[in-house]
Amino acid sequence: MSELAGILPTLLEQTAIMLWIVAVSLVFGGFGGLVIGTGLYVTRRGGILQQPVIWWVLGVLVNTFRPIPFIIFLAAMQPIGRLVVGKGIGTEYAIFAIALAATFGIARIVEQNLVSIPTGVIEAARSTGASPWRIIRTVILPEALGPLVLGYTFAVIAIVDMSAVAGLVGGDGLGNWAITYGYRQFDPLVTWSALLVIVVVVQLIQALGNWLARRIMRR
């Protein structure tokens, strides 16, 4: 018990860092993914801004980055991180890499959810003389909001997963703490308490996502 009390402050601190990494990555990756995913949807054949070349380029971009295992991606993006956030190590760089990886993952999630919108409602909006940009804001995104929330919930949990390997580039967070102080120092209490917190966090995120989606879809 006293052992647990001893690690508790660090556990809380590392939990806070993990949540910070997840939140910031979600904001940037979530926005980037929304833009690229919506771009894929509107530029596809039959889309409201049909643009075969842009659609093809976006598709290749997503397909190139998405399948890279994250631990390799994290190592490989260092030069780009130095250009964008000024460094290739530490928590800030980890956030950059996670946000970038999440952008491409979320792009596909967004695209898949938008495809399920009945084309009739878009046609109805077009018949009122609405511009493509207005249709994106007032029809496409609101109509898909419920499924999008579920998709983003799925993405947040993937981001929690990615945040666990931040330690590879010297980033902090629960994952790094569990590996460095739990696994490497043969302290199962650290490993298991980190694991327990992660499980609880994921459960809470999923419950929140389900609740929100249910409210939006009114069922």
Binding site: E123, G129, S131
Partner: peptide, 24 residues
């Protein structure tokens, strides 16, 4: 473009499947 959309506002349309926005 814009000039076509201006004219479209003067033509109403209704559909077999109603096509109402479920978010509104």
């Amino acid at each position: 473009g814009r000039r076509l959309r201006e004219q479209q506002t003067g033509i109403g349309m209704i559909f077999q499947r109603f096509n109402l926005l479920t978010s509104r």
